[in-house]
Amino acid sequence: MELLLIFLIGILYAAGIYLMLRRSMVRLLLGIMLLGNGCNLLIFLLGNITKGKPPVIAEHAKTFTDIYADPVPQALILTAIVISFGLTSFAIVLLKRVYLLVNTDDLDGLNTPEEEDL
């Protein structure tokens, strides 16, 4: 299972970097999204995948002795998903506005009018 996740993380990173190096704004955004998903999987993998009980201590026990699943990586990933959703929605609106103003998706075509006169 871990080996499959390692290959998936590598594919997501490679595809994300490839898309970020393209000249299209939409491909840049898709590359950032793929990199974010690869980072989420990496955090999940580094959190030691363990099939266990939730980390709840019984009333009569003083410590927890069974194998339990660590909730911290899951909380970090959930927070990262929410932040990446907000960033992605803002970037989509921003890209749409830029496309309406410039009429191009090419990053090289985003020169300001002052630069074109020189």
Score class of each variant (00 low, 15 high):
103 N>M: 08
30 L>S: 14
81 I>P: 01
67 I>P: 07
75 A>K: 01
93 V>D: 12
38 G>E: 05
100 L>A: 08
58 A>Y: 10
106 D>T: 08
47 G>E: 05
108 D>R: 07
88 T>W: 05
107 L>H: 04
85 F>N: 15
57 I>T: 12
1 M>C: 06
113 P>A: 13
25 M>C: 04
53 K>T: 10
75 A>I: 06
78 L>D: 11
35 L>G: 02
118 L>P: 07
7 F>A: 14
97 R>K: 08
10 G>Y: 12
110 L>D: 12
22 R>Y: 06
79 T>G: 13
61 A>M: 15
3 L>T: 15
77 I>S: 00
69 A>S: 11
43 I>Y: 06
71 P>Y: 07
27 R>N: 10
55 P>Y: 03
39 C>T: 13
83 I>N: 02
98 V>D: 03
82 V>L: 09
41 L>Q: 02
1 M>A: 04
90 F>V: 11
111 N>W: 13
72 V>I: 03
15 A>F: 11
76 L>D: 01
44 F>R: 00
90 F>N: 13
10 G>V: 09
53 K>H: 12
56 V>Y: 01
66 D>Q: 14
118 L>N: 08
22 R>Q: 03
73 P>V: 00
88 T>F: 02
107 L>R: 08
76 L>S: 07
46 L>Q: 13
87 L>I: 07
24 S>F: 00
43 I>P: 03
116 E>I: 15
70 D>V: 06
35 L>Y: 03
84 S>T: 12
29 L>N: 10
103 N>P: 07
28 L>V: 05
67 I>S: 12
94 L>Q: 09
23 R>E: 12
79 T>N: 12
77 I>L: 02
22 R>T: 03
60 H>I: 06
65 T>R: 04
36 G>V: 01
1 M>N: 03
116 E>V: 15
84 S>Y: 11
66 D>E: 14
109 G>P: 04
62 K>C: 09
87 L>D: 04
92 I>E: 06
65 T>E: 12
11 I>E: 00
115 E>A: 10
105 D>E: 08
26 V>R: 08
111 N>A: 15
56 V>M: 04
48 N>Q: 11
28 L>G: 05
11 I>G: 06
78 L>H: 14
73 P>H: 01
48 N>T: 13
41 L>R: 01
85 F>E: 13
1 M>Q: 09
76 L>H: 13
63 T>D: 09
31 G>N: 09
18 Y>H: 11
67 I>A: 12
102 V>Q: 06
57 I>C: 03
67 I>E: 14
106 D>H: 10
21 L>E: 03
5 L>N: 02
113 P>Q: 05
110 L>I: 06
109 G>I: 01
23 R>F: 02
77 I>F: 00
54 P>M: 11
62 K>N: 15
15 A>H: 13
37 N>F: 06
24 S>T: 00
31 G>C: 10
14 A>G: 04
76 L>Y: 08
64 F>L: 15
57 I>G: 03
12 L>N: 04
74 Q>R: 08
110 L>T: 07
70 D>A: 02
33 M>L: 09
78 L>G: 11
30 L>C: 14
88 T>N: 11
63 T>V: 09
102 V>H: 14
90 F>E: 15
34 L>P: 07
1 M>T: 06
25 M>A: 10
112 T>A: 12
7 F>T: 07
2 E>Y: 15
25 M>D: 02
91 A>V: 03
5 L>A: 01
38 G>M: 05
